[in-house]
Write a protein that binds this DNA or RNA. Structure first.
Lengths: 235, 235
DNA sequence: GCATTTCTTAACGTTTTCTTAAACCCGGGC
DNA sequence: GCCCGGGTTTAAGAAAACGTTAAGAAATGC
């Protein structure tokens, strides 16, 4: 299964840490949040494939968060709760959650359920649903719609080739993070990089040509001398 | 939620009867089978939206049945088992089941989980799942009547073959969204795509022949090179 | 059981995109 | 200011993806 981005939300930082470690071992990328509002923020603008959400949290509880997230995105939600009352499970599943586990949970079962949810969600097209907001990555004037696979730069449509699209989508999903050419090759092409750094650079250049006003002085796609490339995080 | 067809499989006829009654109260249509082989037969012949499957059965057990069904169809599967061992749950979920409940189960929770699975499966676009409300899909000059299964292009009737109809209905239900040939195959044919991309392309071409003024320069059914096809969203 | 329609498969042509390699340029240390 | 290890640019050949056609297989209807 391809790597997925999973948001883990619980007010207990230890629990978040434990679940994060577990899911990272499964090969996923994990984002963390410590209450419902933070979760909502994290979901906004970012590509999240699944949310593991505790029901009991301060500020905004898990059920309210489920409803709020559903209004924006169609991402699968797995609820966690200390309560094993059937009524709670039924309530959670009824308002839009995809699965419900009672604490204490078996970590392996949690991983298995997460994988089962991801399997279906990703395989069914990862975005089959026209979620209210659609799946879009935003950074400065760049808007990448991952449903329609289209890019607009300051509102103007820009045509990308498949490799350019995948490369840009990857960089935009991790703004600010620096990747070496070899890392980019392995993540985007999904095969070991054997002297293919230059290939990546050529695509970087093509991308700059398309998204930068002045490709010589890039505003988005910056080089970090000796280390790699990054998508500059523009508020 | 629209009425769904659910296959309930258990060697204990009483249990099948009880679950069937429960799900019928929820407004679903229920098919019954009493072992894995019967289940396979039922799935083969009919359109099934979800399967509730007992793990312990004669002739062919639930896990084998899960594997066998998955080889043909992509329908969600909820496993039921007398064993509450975590290892069994994990095994079930790993081989392709979507959910797992241990007996004795709370009937209301079973119903809630069934509904949660159906919600996502149907909404993510099980082939041919068209809401009764919007019985016509309109896009530009295309009008697809999902009740009568008829298409008009700029007012003129156009005959579609069954496969063409399903493919077009799927694409029109998500205008603007790009799907790869493999995704289209899996969602329209509802079976794993094994080198069947070309089949999809041929049907795409036939559709273009029927709905496009100039099939070489399609206005509706566009290709996004390297990524897939989409139904262009005409205001 | 036969006739008709529809689907699948495979081969080939066309278009687009990717990769490669070589030349060039720039930043920073000396 | 010169040198060197990157980084950038260019262009052309190779590869991949799509389009088209046709024929045989399968399903359907009579």
């Amino acid at each position: 299964m391809r790597q997925a981005t999973i948001l883990v939300v619980d007010d207990d930082r230890e629990i978040v840490g434990a679940i994060a470690k577990l899911l990272e071992l499964e090969g996923h990328r994990v984002l963390r949040a410590y209450d419902g509002l933070e979760a909502l923020e994290a979901v906004h603008g970012q590509a999240v494939d699944l949310i593991v959400l505790d029901v009991m949290m301060p500020r905004m509880d898990g059920l309210s968060a489920t409803l709020a997230v559903r209004r924006q995105k169609n991402v699968p939600i797995l609820l966690l709760s200390a309560k094993s009352e059937d009524a709670d499970k039924i309530a959670g599943l009824s308002i839009g959650a995809d699965d419900y586990m009672a604490k204490p949970y078996n970590p392996m079962e949690l991983a298995a359920r997460v994988n089962a949810l991801l399997r279906r969600y990703l395989q069914l097209g990862a975005a089959g649903a026209q979620g209210p907001a659609g799946s879009r990555l935003v950074n400065g004037g760049l808007v990448l719609d991952t449903d329609a696979k289209t890019l607009t730069v300051d509102g103007a449509d820009v045509r990308l080739t498949p490799t350019e699209y995948k490369l840009l989508a990857f960089l935009m999903s991790r703004p600010g993070h620096v990747f070496s050419a070899a890392q980019l090759y392995e993540r985007v092409w999904d095969e070991p990089c054997y002297n293919a750094e230059n290939t990546v650079m050529v695509h970087i250049r093509h991308l700059r040509e398309k998204i930068e006003l002045n490709p010589k002085k890039p505003k988005y796609l910056k080089v970090v001398w000796g280390l790699g490339y990054k998508m500059e995080n523009i508020q």
